[in-house]
């Protein structure tokens, strides 16, 4: 059994984004989701600094530094791009206008709590838009490795790290499984075919519940 790569996790998350959905992708790893929209579907991407409907990165040397995303990387214009100021941008976020936000995580708890902004009191704290994004999008999904580099579960009963938001996550795409959060429980939807339920449970910090069939998590080589 080979766990999914980050690219494959991003691909899986992209399959659940509908045509025409308004989507915010968190800085870093989640940005990859944009590359894997299924043919025939076109989502409209929102970036907190004030662009809706931007295109991919320009070729090196063609950057315009007034045209960047929330990660401060250069993006491009597309037909239908809109610009707006920061208060309008976060009205889109908090006002329930986004369909999906896909974010990274340090920890996700079975009640939907998310910790993804701080690893503790050391260093310089920085939050950006993380605490805003977890509120307002109709669906808040997380993409993450199933366990940390030291093998500790990232899906837990209760987050130990500082929270970004309370009860906000509804689906988690991991390197091993797709897990929904429903009524304070993790509900297993898909898992890698070569992985037994018991193995997956042993790598998860809270009880995995079943609600109907568990599908195989099938992702192409990327």
């Amino acid at each position: 059994m080979t766990k999914l790569t980050s690219t494959q996790i991003a691909w899986r998350a992209a399959q659940d984004i509908d045509d025409g959905a308004y989507v915010n992708l968190g800085i870093g790893f989640p940005e990859m989701v944009a590359k894997f929209q299924p043919p025939g579907r076109q989502a409209i991407f929102h970036t907190e600094n004030g662009i809706l409907g931007f295109g991919e990165a320009p070729a090196p040397g063609l950057e315009d530094w007034d045209l960047i995303n929330a990660g401060k990387k250069a993006v491009t214009l597309k037909p239908g791009t809109a610009f707006f100021h920061h208060a309008d941008s976060f009205a889109m976020v908090r006002g329930g206008h986004l369909d999906v936000a896909i974010l990274g995580a340090y920890e996700v708890a079975e009640n939907g709590d998310l910790a993804n902004w701080s690893t503790g009191p050391k260093g310089v704290p920085a939050v950006g838009g993380a605490m805003d994004l977890v509120h307002g999008a109709k669906r808040v999904a997380v993409i993450t490795e199933h366990v940390t580099k030291d093998g500790k579960p990232k899906l837990v009963q209760k987050c130990a790290l500082p929270l970004t938001g309370v009860g906000c996550v509804t689906r988690v795409y991991t390197s091993l499984a797709v897990v929904d959060i429903q009524d304070g429980h993790f509900v297993l939807r898909e898992k890698l075919a070569g992985l037994s339920f018991d193995e997956l449970q042993s790598l998860t910090g809270a009880t995995l519940h079943l609600d109907g069939d568990v599908a195989d998590l099938i992702v192409p080589e990327l």
């Binding site: 941008s89 976060f90 950006g128 993380a130």
Partner: peptide
């Protein structure tokens, strides 16, 4: 440092 979530910062200014 006063750390403020980005959307809250924008709305406080507005």
């Amino acid at each position: 440092l006063e750390l403020v979530p980005q959307g809250t910062l924008a709305e406080r200014i507005r």
